[in-house]
Design a protein around this nucleic acid. Sequence first.
DNA 1: CATGATCACTGACCGTAGTCAGGTATCAAC
DNA 2: GTTGATACCTGACTACGGTCAGTGATCATG
Lengths: 291, 291
Amino acid sequence: MPPDPAARIRRFHRAVTREAGALDASFLGRGRPLGVARVLWQIPRQSGDLTAIRAGLGLDSGQFSRILRSLEREGLITLARHEGDGRRRLARLTGAGADEVALYNRLSDDSAKGLVAAAPNSAVFLAAMDLIATVLNRGQTEVRLADPDDPAAQACLQAYFDLLVAQIDGMRHDHLPLPDPHADRYRPPNGAFLIAWSDDLAIGCVSLRTLVPGLGEVKRLWVAPDARGQGLARRLMLAVEEQARKLGMTQLKLDTNAGLTDAIALYQKTGWSPTQAYSGFPSTHWFAKSL
Amino acid sequence: MPPDPAARIRRFHRAVTREAGALDASFLGRGRPLGVARVLWQIPRQSGDLTAIRAGLGLDSGQFSRILRSLEREGLITLARHEGDGRRRLARLTGAGADEVALYNRLSDDSAKGLVAAAPNSAVFLAAMDLIATVLNRGQTEVRLADPDDPAAQACLQAYFDLLVAQIDGMRHDHLPLPDPHADRYRPPNGAFLIAWSDDLAIGCVSLRTLVPGLGEVKRLWVAPDARGQGLARRLMLAVEEQARKLGMTQLKLDTNAGLTDAIALYQKTGWSPTQAYSGFPSTHWFAKSL
DNA sequence: CATGATCACTGACCGTAGTCAGGTATCAAC
DNA sequence: GTTGATACCTGACTACGGTCAGTGATCATG
């Protein structure tokens, strides 16, 4: 119904930059320049790692240094030597600093609450925001090792199981308990759990466990619907193969179900060969790959 | 599945400000400060009306004046006296200016194309952007008179008819032809067509026609699903009543269908009284109101 | 024709963001 | 120990956005 895509995106862009400006202005409301506020706000998120904060905000080293000194002068942070690397320093919030961060968090939360309340359907609205953020974050997706008991890992598995139920005929949810009582199988040195991150949201996962020494099994490959079509499944598979090599495995197996057609196509394209059955329902296809 | 709403909105905000920054940077790529580029870009959109451009961008009068002179020095615009108001001036693009604007448009279109291509499902992605823009633009919605043959009006009616088909049992789309062969009935002095604008997207409409001199009929009240819950239908009804008064009408009628429960509730709350039937299917309810 | 409001322009000023060229201390590698 | 890279700091500089007070021209109003 509406006009051409470029016009719609421009409208979105106008709406969103105005909103961003309003939020920035509320950050400025604490009497501190925006750059300084952003650094302060990032310190707890990156647990004080100066390099990570600077890289995340894309700041010049000189400017960053000045911002830190300004925060120090305000008594909001203290800078301590990094243990283990004398070149680096670690930022730590003082009590007053923590209070300020909490205040900024409240400002941002309030604006978030107002937004959600204004939407006709908050679940749909938040899902739309997730989708857009995921698309905009494409190319910034990072695959990292995670603990299988991490809440983000649990969320991935939950989504994965939901997908199985939806796509596999005869599948019932209670076939796969959560949290996984066998989490330890997916921790080094037995196995691994990998999560694909889009900023701080988990949008994909894959896991690896040992069947017998030297032989691993890849399980639970999942990619969020919003993130499909970016080659993320392939990246996760490459990453899990690398983990397998690091754990000294020389061969991998996996099982899957005919309902997961995209996954099967991917395995066939990336060096996996059909192999004989080694597991039961819901599996209908089995693959193996030598490392 | 994902974490708390505030965190999701913050992630959205981060993703979107980074994207906006990237687009701004590409605007800067033409060797012109962003503020200057934005003004140049807005001139054709507002057909050179300096006051409208300045208000739209929220610029200080002094700063704006300097930006205009910089564009003049570059040979991209000429400033002419406003006919009718000697205090005001009118900006007009030169040939070189029009070329620059076209180039900026291409830059923005390219970035839009890239975005749409990156989404797993472009229709869903664009709909998500429309929803978010509509929610963010809440409070900036404007109701204005429109010509019933305007493409935006046609788009509204199309959406309205689609809604009727979806909500009314037995309704078929071909009952209501488009474009409307009787558009003239909805133009002054016979009637009126009102559109609610969210930026440059039409998100609601209502129309008015004359039944007999002094007696009007309100028809085709529509609000986009994204924009529900903001009291927009009420605003449209108030606006159309005002138009009716301006056209010298003293009484209004309308018909509606039991499937449109929200509309019926609104009429009952805003001074409309049930009246006897004056039209057939798909109507099931009839209301009247004296002005 | 006086009044007050509006529109546009000018000059002076400020804070912030951002760049650049050094400089110092530390680390890892040979 | 030497070398080169890394992490952080400093000082000098610029551009840009934004504010403010004051000016002159024009308009609508009574």
